[in-house]
Design a protein around this nucleic acid. Sequence first.
DNA 1: TATATTAGTTAGCATAGCTAACTATATTCG
DNA 2: CGAATATAGTTAGCTATGCTAACTAATATA
Lengths: 157, 157
Amino acid sequence: MTKVKPEDIAPRAETIAAADRLHSAAIHLLRRVRKQDEASGVGPAQLSALSVLVFAGPRTLGELATAEQVKPPTMSRIVAGLKRSRLIEIIRDPGDKRRMHIRPTAKGTRLLQEGRQRRIEYLAAHLGSLTASELAQLGAAADILEKLLSNWQVSPL
Amino acid sequence: MTKVKPEDIAPRAETIAAADRLHSAAIHLLRRVRKQDEASGVGPAQLSALSVLVFAGPRTLGELATAEQVKPPTMSRIVAGLKRSRLIEIIRDPGDKRRMHIRPTAKGTRLLQEGRQRRIEYLAAHLGSLTASELAQLGAAADILEKLLSNWQVSPL
DNA sequence: TATATTAGTTAGCATAGCTAACTATATTCG
DNA sequence: CGAATATAGTTAGCTATGCTAACTAATATA
């Protein structure tokens, strides 16, 4: 009864197949939904960062970069774009002048929620053709994935 | 007994919730997996186009653009990059000199399969912490999604 | 206080998306 | 047949998003 770590287990055929199909489905799903987001006139990276700010609250630039799995210079430019469009505002940290706290403006919050609305309606219109059981399965899968992703340690390079 | 089209149905709360969680899970999953693909030294758009060529067979540039939901100039550049890296080769159509048939080289096929291997091992190592039941649910969800996506009519603009 | 660390920016490069305008080839129609 | 039209792909030029390297400014530490 030897104990093995996940990384040591040679993936079984079903695992491989599930991983592959999941990957493919995720790519194709996002391609479709992404098109809806274009209507907002804001790029995907900006939209995603804004979404963090709206749903998880204000963050510093570094925190946002970490949350979005992006390097600071990249986030710096994303934030600059959001600021130019007046979707966020920057509050200087009173205690540490190097830091900036970034938070959505009312306009930013509105834009994000409208986008969400649009995306949801689009997706839901298509999910509507599924049976209740299928829909439930998708919801369950999403939950399993999110749970999995939340303790998914990114190996330090 | 009035008949309604999917787009006319106001999405129910569960549908909205499922759509949202699905979208979020897909985004986060792909962010992780994408990192693995970087090891190939080929960008995501090139990798995705190459994958079509390897798994669905040779295609013209226009067909590839359609398959990848991208405009012809974009695909033109993606193909140029793949050619520069000698991952594909171009065969001129004998009957119509405007057309090009694009097919993977042995190197291209190898690179794609190695990438798939790497991605699968990575994903599978993490999926391995799931129970058999959870894994089965993910696989089922992927199938439902792919089925849904395959008859997902993109509304003509 | 001098040094090191941390937060964020700037510059410069590559990929990827778009539209508009182009070339070259095929097709259609008078 | 030949002119007009349609189709396949390319080129040029814009934006957005990713990176690394090198920088500034501020804070923390020795």
